[in-house]
Design a protein around this nucleic acid. Structure first.
Lengths: 146, 146
DNA sequence: AAATTATTGCAAATCATTTGCAATAAAAGT
DNA sequence: ACTTTTATTGCAAATGATTTGCAATAATTT
């Protein structure tokens, strides 16, 4: 399980004449280690600890490449503040959704097969072809409720 | 029905010692006229036709104020490109969701009571208190499918 | 080991959005 | 109506996340 992202990425890289550099390796590792939808800055800060020469633009380039290859997904969660920073999700972008605690900013991932049903009903009613679904719940986690 | 947003806004404004200026009036009107989730720029372009002296920062200030008052909602839809522009929705932010055609960028609003069920099931399972739900479907509208 | 070229670091550019401030214009007081 | 008060505007500059050009660096190939 561990290293799955790195393995996949390495393979794709190879098949395109790309190079698995130490920077990319560290960034990929950090995506698996930092569970909770880190921003580019957070990844940068984390990897910088072990490689102080890493540059932020390398982080962005790597993340965008991973995104294009479909290995990770980028999105914003829009609280009142933080409206502009992308967050990156190491998990497959397909069929998993998010709850966000607007207080402590923690993220819980979930799935529910009713969501597939919502998608199907919409398709049937409108003749739209639905490629992907994003469900985000905003609220308070048990800790932040009292 | 027409002017509902303007009426509500005027009332809130009054109750706070605020002033209903011509700029605000035009921006509010444009939000009702431009149906489809315009960006600040689009609103600016539209209102500029009738008031060439309007400034973009006034548009932003008005939109953010409306957002804070809960009269409109701001969000991004993330296609591959346009990752950074907010889109503003004159409709109530509660209980209505979006389909976006990734080809022609058209937006279809919808609702489905299964979504409430998804929310309830999640709450029950996690003890999280869910305040709002956002569902976005991405795909191709009938026109763009062939 | 030399040649090739993908990738990096750096600095500058973008672009949507925000903010400080002096000028303007609603609304209130006279 | 006329002055005063102060919310709101326009303008220009600042911000902050992300992107990009380019020369230097380092994987891979020869």
């Amino acid at each position: 399980m561990m290293g799955a992202l790195l393995d996949e990425a390495t393979e794709i890289l190879r098949s395109r004449g790309g190079r698995m550099t130490s920077q990319r390796k560290r960034i990929l590792e950090s995506l698996e280690l930092l569970g909770s939808h880190p921003s580019a800055d957070e990844i940068f800060a984390f990897v910088s600890q072990s490689d102080p020469t890493l540059n932020l633009s390398t982080v962005y380039r790597t993340l965008r490449w991973l995104e294009q290859e479909g290995l990770i997904s980028a999105r914003h969660f829009h609280f009142d503040e933080d409206r502009r920073t992308d967050r990156f999700d190491a998990a497959s972008p397909i069929d998993h959704h998010h709850f966000i605690c607007t207080e402590c900013k923690s993220v819980i991932e979930f799935d529910n097969r009713l969501i597939g049903e919502v998608k199907n009903q919409f398709s049937r009613q409108t003749n739209c072809w639905v490629q992907s679904v994003s469900v985000v719940l905003y609220g308070l986690c048990p800790n932040c409720q009292k």
